[in-house]
Amino acid sequence: MMTFFVAALLLSIGLYCVAVKRDLIKIAIGIIIMEYAITLFFVASAPWRGGEDYLAQVAALTGLATTIVIVALVRRLYGRYGTLDISQMRRLKG
């Protein structure tokens, strides 16, 4: 049961990070934390389905792919805007 609480805690920390922080790196870390939380949830619920948990591995792998794209994008964005502050990147609106 403890693991579920940890997962829930991680999820809220990640969500807080993404929804409140302005720094792109912190937002990226928030997303990664959320991914870990969900993966943890998969791992923790594995005993319910008889210990078969290749799902957790696949979930972690797709999360990894997203992380790679985020990092690549953040690097490019820094080159274009000269800042990592997401609230400065508001050319598209309306």
Partner: peptide, 14 residues
């Protein structure tokens, strides 16, 4: 409605 779409990530996440 257009004014609501202010281009801020946080708004959209909310």
């Amino acid at each position: 409605l257009s004014w609501l779409h202010n281009g801020l990530l946080q708004t959209y996440l909310v």
